[in-house]
């Protein structure tokens, strides 16, 4: 199992464990983490799964793709260099302990 910490906009932390291969969006939704909506189910259509990867993890999660970049234009909160669509980050053992921050709004 891979551990992920979600830091809400107000600073509240939720730690969950998910199976390898699950996306950071899916892991949040199936553990009832508020702050990630994931309306399109990971089809890169809705940009309601926006998250900011913690500085310490940036190198490990990698860069966002061009399409991801375009879809982020539709995100409800500010997009920064660390913005990702969490449905596009797949969990693998190298991401055990991953920390992501959640935006104020997803819609």
């Amino acid at each position: 199992m891979i551990r992920v910490t979600y830091v809400a906009h107000d600073g509240a932390e939720t730690v969950i464990e998910a199976e390898e291969g699950t996306s950071v969006m899916q892991a949040a939704v199936s553990n009832d983490v508020d702050g990630i909506v994931g309306e399109c189910g990971g089809s890169m259509m809705c940009a309601t799964c926006h998250c900011y990867v913690d500085e310490a993890w940036e190198a490990k999660t990698g860069q966002r793709s061009d399409d991801e970049d375009e879809m982020l234009e539709g995100a409800a909160s500010e997009v920064t260099g660390r913005s990702r669509l969490s449905c596009q980050i797949k969990l693998d053992p190298s991401l055990d302990g991953l920390v992501v921050h959640l935006p104020e709004e997803q819609l």
Binding site: M44, D66, D67, E70, M71, E73, G74
Partner: peptide, 10 residues
């Protein structure tokens, strides 16, 4: 073409 799609949505 996600780019054109998002532009169109806006």
């Amino acid at each position: 073409n996600a780019r054109a799609h998002m532009k169109a949505r806006r």
